[in-house]
């Protein structure tokens, strides 16, 4: 690309952005909208029980979170494409029997804890991304100890391409179901509490499983490169 054109393009983008930044309320100032009325409004009209953070992320600003999830998943998939493997992974050096035993011992507990964090995000701090990191870390741990081949065998084979996109897909499904139930895309049917909860859980599970698979694939791609 022509460097002058690039410079002009960047300047043209930067000037309005800086102008917008200057018009924002000063960082930490007490008359920011979030301090004057937005936060209070969220807390007052939020759900009686459950995790307010999850309610805001998936409900009040569900569209924004949908966009975020799509951007993050597309970014990670792009990294995966760039890091696609060239030579087969090395087999692991024979693991210490002690470490192997302990890792086998804790693996089911960590997996259970990961799913617990994903699903309990509706009630207590937690959620899809945190659980995804725990599950992905579990796969990476197994890869460290037993070798990448073993870690790969932990992932689902044929369903992998679909499950990798589970985050955006689950969000899309929740949006369509919500659209049918309420007439608004990503509207949550508050008059059907069971369906409402199922939709939130589906979105969390999608983000969790999809994120965990992407973290694991990222690790495997690095090991193979």
């Amino acid at each position: 690309m022509n460097p002058r054109l690039a410079a002009a393009f960047v300047t043209g983008l930067a000037v309005p952005m800086l102008a917008a930044m200057a018009a924002l309320p000063r960082h930490g100032s007490p008359d920011q909208p979030i301090h004057t009325h937005v936060a209070r409004e969220y807390i007052e009209s939020g759900p009686e029980t459950g995790n307010l953070v999850t309610a805001i992320l998936l409900d009040y600003r569900g569209m924004d979170t949908f966009g975020e999830v799509v951007v993050i998943f597309v970014g990670l998939v792009a990294v995966l494409v760039l890091a696609r493997h060239r030579e087969p992974a090395l087999p692991a050096a024979s693991p210490s029997p002690i470490v192997a035993f302990i890792v086998r011992l804790v693996t089911p507990f960590i997996a259970l804890f990961g799913f617990h964090v994903i699903l309990s995000g509706l009630e207590v701090p937690g959620g899809g991304l945190q659980g995804a990191a725990i599950l992905g870390g579990l796969v990476i741990l197994n890869g460290f100890v037993f070798g990448p081949q073993h870690a790969r065998s932990l992932l689902p084979g044929r369903l992998l391409p679909w499950l990798q996109g589970a985050g955006p897909l689950a969000f899309l499904a929740a949006g369509i179901v919500g659209g049918i139930a309420t007439g608004f895309a990503l509207g949550y049917p508050t008059h059907l509490p069971l369906l409402h909860e199922a939709m939130l859980m589906g979105v969390e599970l999608g983000i969790g499983i999809g994120g965990a698979l992407i973290f694991s694939r990222l690790y495997l791609a690095l090991e193979d490169a």
Binding site: P125, I140, Y219
Partner: peptide, 21 residues
Amino acid sequence: PDVALTEAAVGAGVTTLLFLV
């Protein structure tokens, strides 16, 4: 606590492992 959990799982956990790999 939500942000803290994310920081612990992503920042201290997965990111460190990927760096080490």
